[in-house]
Structures are given as C-alpha cells and as structure tokens.
Nucleic acid binder design. Sequence first.
DNA 1: AGAAATTTCCCACTTTAGTATGAGGTAAAA
DNA 2: TTTTACCTCATACTAAAGTGGGAAATTTCT
Lengths: 146, 146
Amino acid sequence: MRPIIIGFGLMILCLLVLFKIAEVNFIKGDVKLEVIVAIAAMIFFFVGLYFNYQQGKKREEPTPQQPETGTINTIDYNQIKKLGLTQREHDVLVKMATGCSNQEIATALFLSESTIKTHVSNIFFKLDVKRRTQAVQVARELKIVV
Amino acid sequence: MRPIIIGFGLMILCLLVLFKIAEVNFIKGDVKLEVIVAIAAMIFFFVGLYFNYQQGKKREEPTPQQPETGTINTIDYNQIKKLGLTQREHDVLVKMATGCSNQEIATALFLSESTIKTHVSNIFFKLDVKRRTQAVQVARELKIVV
DNA sequence: AGAAATTTCCCACTTTAGTATGAGGTAAAA
DNA sequence: TTTTACCTCATACTAAAGTGGGAAATTTCT
C-alpha cells in the first residue's frame, strides 16, 4: 500500500512540476505545448504500466490448499513451497514455460536481464535441472506451471 | 508485435489530435495548459493500464482443435502433415520437448550435432518460432508432442 | 530494531543455441 | 533418367543462455 501512495505522490508532484515548468517557459515562448503534452503523456503512460505491474505483483499466493483432490490444470502451491521456489522465481518460471527468452521475461516483469538470469539459475538449482526446456518439462510434471 | 505497433500508432495519433485541439483552443484562451496536460496525463495513464492488461491477457490461444474422436494425449499426425514437418524433424522435436540439448539429441539419434541444428532450425521455421522453449510450447498446443 | 530471506542488478566468462550457406548421398516420383 | 524431397554433415559466425561471485535495497520475520 505504501508504494502506491508514494507512487501517486510522485505522480502528482511530477504533474505540478510540469505545470510550473510549462507556465514559466510559456511566457518566454521557448517550450512548445506539444512537447509538454508529449512529456506528460509519456510519463503517465509508463506510470500506468508501472502501476498495473505493481498491482499484478501483489497477488495472493499462500492459499492453505489441500494436498488432494483431482485438481486438473491447477497449480500445486504445496509443490512450489516444497521446492523452496520463491514468488518471483515462480513468476519467471511461468514466463519461461510460455517460451519467453530471458530478455522477454525481463521486459514483461520490468526487470533487467541480469535479474532474470539470477532467478533462472536459482530455479535450475531448485528443480535440479540444467536447461530451461528441462525446467519447463519438470515444472509441468510437478504441476507448478499450467 | 503487430498489435503493439498499431497500438502505439493510435497512441501517437491521439497525441497529435490532442495537440491540434489544444492549439485551436489555446488561441481563444479558453483552455488552460494545466487542463490539457491533465487530460493527456489521464488518457495515457489509462492507455498504459490497458496496454499492460492486454499484454498479460494475450498468451492464451483459442485452441480450435478436435475434428473428431476424444484423442487424449495423442499425437495429431494431421497437424504434423499440415505443418510440413518431416519424420526426422518430428523425432527431434519430441526429444527437444523432453528437455534434451542438441548434443543429447544427436547422441540419442546417432547423429552429429550439426544435423540436429539443421533440423532444429527447420522446425523453428515451420512452427514459426524463434526459440526451442517456444517450439515445445507450440508443439504441445498443436498436439504434435505429448 | 535486528536478522534472515527476497529481490534486484553487475561483471566477466564459458557454453549452448541458432543462422547462413554449401554440399554430398539416397530414394522415390515424374 | 532427371527432378524433388529428405537426410546428413560442416564451417563460420552471432546471439542467447548459463555460471560464479559480489553486493545493495526491500521485505518479512522474530
């Protein structure tokens, strides 16, 4: 909740600053309206992206879960916990299973490729595999990805 | 990738339209700069939200399928033929789906790694993918591997 | 508050993957 | 008997993937 408030605070601050800059420079006639609007548009576009990203990040996960019942096409959270996979690692694993490259995963999750590589390495260790195709195969068998 | 480009195209169009409206109304002195910027910000904030939403949403394909017979976990040879995959390519694809490296596939099929690479490249072309994880994913959806 | 676990990111490498192109051999179709 | 489609293999690169070690910032737990 904190980051959202902070984010919106910064957002509003940005807006105000833009207003001021616009006002000041407008008298001088230096800055075109188009530029100001474009900048605002860009900033808020990405703010929107980031906001949504933050929202999606905070999805619940524990779900006490019962270790039985013919759960068809359902992720087995117990299995994930048993393997010691973290939330983020699972995120990466899911993306990996769809055939994304490290760079694509990084872009999708707003992270650097380095980070993805780190996660991927940890995933391989925890799943006891050597390659991503193997990881996907194992993950599918263990029902930790659909 | 196409939809993204189109999306950005529309986005830019939006921006330009906003510019024009702003220009016109600015001469009259009716619309304040703050208002224009705020509107632009709002619009692009939600564009950002929607964009991200669409990105996350698309990933699931229709999976038309099922011409007949409840073929559970069975390879669809019609699909293979339709794609123009040869026998050998299918062999390689199957091995690939189990997480084998090129070298491992080569060993398993008593071929050189070069040959496997050739087959793999052809598979990618026929499946219209760029990476092996993607190929496996697509192959699974098309039921040409179990 | 302090410790422990997560998450993020880098750098410097090593290893696989993947691309482009060419080419010899075989077997079936025209 | 050509042609055509496959299968095989190679070389030379370019591009990703994966490893190891370190480290700062956050979050979570105690």
